[in-house]
Amino acid sequence: MSHDHDHTEDHAHVHRYPPRPDQDDTLTYYRAMEAAVRELLIDKGVLTAEDVRRQVENMDGRNAGLGAKMVARAWIDSAYKQRMLANGSEAAEEIGLDVGPLKLVVVENTPTVHNVIVCTLCSCYPRMLLGLPPDWYKSRNYRSRVVREPRAVLAEFGTVIPDDVLIRVHDSTADMRYLVAPRRPQGTENWGEAELARLVTRDSMIGVALADPA
């Protein structure tokens, strides 16, 4: 808070930045199209407003905490880790995570291999365990370059992978989604699963970052 000015108003109510405009405020052509299609489908009984509300809520409830739970479990339970690497979908379901009809493949980072995921053709992403993807994941620059110069792209995220570590880039498809299991940070030997899960960030499961340090 600035002390250069002598204000008499209650500073708690002064906005220092203009509020971010609500994207729903402007009725763009495509926003009108969304509303029209949704209302037509409701009118025709194809779906209900409640179905839409519930599905929006379902996706809103999905975030990287789900994937983190699976990775943390694998860190403390090597038998589980083997099952996870053999069949990601079944391993997710085993700990109560709903992955739907998509095939999930978990790829493990090791001292010699670092994995990173992309969808060069569109935006396929392990959305069932991470939520909706960040914009950059869907961007032309990421999709184009990470398959050709992953080391340089990772460095742009501040992640420098040593030259003697192989980088594997996994190109996702509509039916098959990859998730990266990052390496367990040092100094976490006696940590519990919930504590460990907090170190497993979204970006570490995409592979553009490492898990947070202890």
């Binding site: 609500d22 994207q23 729903d24 926003r31 969304e34 509303a35 299609v37 949704r38 489908l41 179905d51 839409v52 599905q55 929006v56 996706m59 809103d60 992309v118 060069t120 053709l121 569109c122 909706l132 960040p134 914009d135 950059w136 961007s139 032309r140 620059n141 990421y142 999709r143 184009s144 370059r145 990470v146 398959v147 050709r148 792209v153 742009e156 995220f157 190109d171």
Partner: peptide, 28 residues
């Protein structure tokens, strides 16, 4: 749309909170 491996610029770490209409498109 088939852009894998083509030259492109630096990756800008952009993100935004999805607007309700975008979430509805996804839901549809």
């Amino acid at each position: 749309h088939d852009m894998g491996g083509l030259p492109a610029g630096a990756v800008e770490p952009t993100e935004h909170d999805y607007a309700l209409w975008e979430k509805r498109v996804d839901a549809l």
